[in-house]
């Protein structure tokens, strides 16, 4: 199935919000990304899946305009953008696997992006308050952001991003450190917010269970290339090959991970 066909199956009426063409990226002389085309549509949640080193985080970094690809273009709303396009980047926000808190309180962390956008203080106060309430972390508002538990920090990182009401939200393994319950809470919050704000969510995960819970579409990456992309139901229903099937099968994925850990320990 070609990339083009996928776009058509997602409804020809909608035009993509974010699009990358002819992406090719090398790091340390080694190719890490080679994608002919990928598109993201307003309001959809797309899960990026693949083994470690498949190129997921690099793709996110390029799409988030944090990094310039060796070759290729990124289009935002049809316009060519790059790391210098501050206006486009300010319509996106990212939450990464390790939630890096800035020095200061939870409140100042959540307000960070709004301050960067020079939003008036009163409005910052109001929006930060609303988000803290919404995510149930009002009680740690004045805590030192660097002394939070993993779950709390992850929520603050999410709050810090969604308070900006981004059009595109990047989540790079946001549930990596969370237990099962916290993960379910995260998915519930996410679905609600995505629907409310019509946010485009690009969600990197290893877990088939998470993908089932949040994904509208799934893209499987391997060796920097797209192995399969399509509606979640279709990809789960008919994996393109053995690797995709193994990545999407919870048990084999888990056992593969165990095997990996086992090898490391030797």
């Amino acid at each position: 199935m070609s990339d083009n066909q996928v776009a058509q199956t997602n409804g020809a009426a909608a035009s993509p919000l974010l699009k990358a063409e002819g992406l090719w990226h090398a790091r340390g002389g080694r190719m890490v990304l080679d994608i002919r085309m990928i598109e993201f549509f307003p309001g959809e949640t797309l899960c990026l899946m693949g083994r470690n080193g498949a190129g997921k985080s690099t793709l996110v970094s390029i799409l988030n305009l944090l990094e310039k690809p060796s070759r290729g273009t990124v289009l935002y709303g049809g316009e060519r953008v790059g790391p210098g396009s501050k206006a486009a980047r300010r319509r996106m926000a990212g939450v990464f696997q390790q939630p890096h808190m800035f020095a200061g309180t939870v409140e100042s962390n959540v307000a960070y992006g709004l301050r960067m956008r020079r939003v008036p203080a009163a409005e910052i106060e109001r929006r930060v308050g609303a988000v803290l309430d919404d995510l149930g972390i009002e009680h740690i508002r004045n805590h030192d952001a660097r002394s939070l538990s993993g779950g709390e920090a992850q929520r603050v990182a999410l709050a810090r991003a969604i308070v900006l009401k981004p059009e595109v939200l990047f989540l790079d393994e946001p549930a990596g450190n969370l237990d099962r319950l916290a993960r379910q809470d995260l998915h519930r919050d996410l679905r609600r917010i995505a629907v409310q704000e019509n946010t485009t969510v690009i969600y990197v995960t290893h877990s088939p269970e998470e993908a089932r819970a949040v994904a509208g579409r799934i893209a499987i990456l391997d060796g920097g290339r797209i192995r399969q992309i399509g509606r979640a139901r279709e990809v789960f229903g008919s994996p393109a090959d053995d690797l995709v099937a193994r990545l999407l099968d919870r048990e084999s994925a888990d056992s593969k991970r165990l095997g990996h850990i086992g090898r490391k320990a030797v």
């Binding site: 926000a93 990212g94 890096h100 960067m116 956008r117 991003a161 900006l164």
Partner: peptide, 15 residues
């Protein structure tokens, strides 16, 4: 400074 911290700031819109 961990690269991620600066990437995070950039991702949240820092010029």
């Amino acid at each position: 400074i961990p690269r991620e911290v600066l990437m995070q700031a950039k991702s949240l819109g820092a010029g």
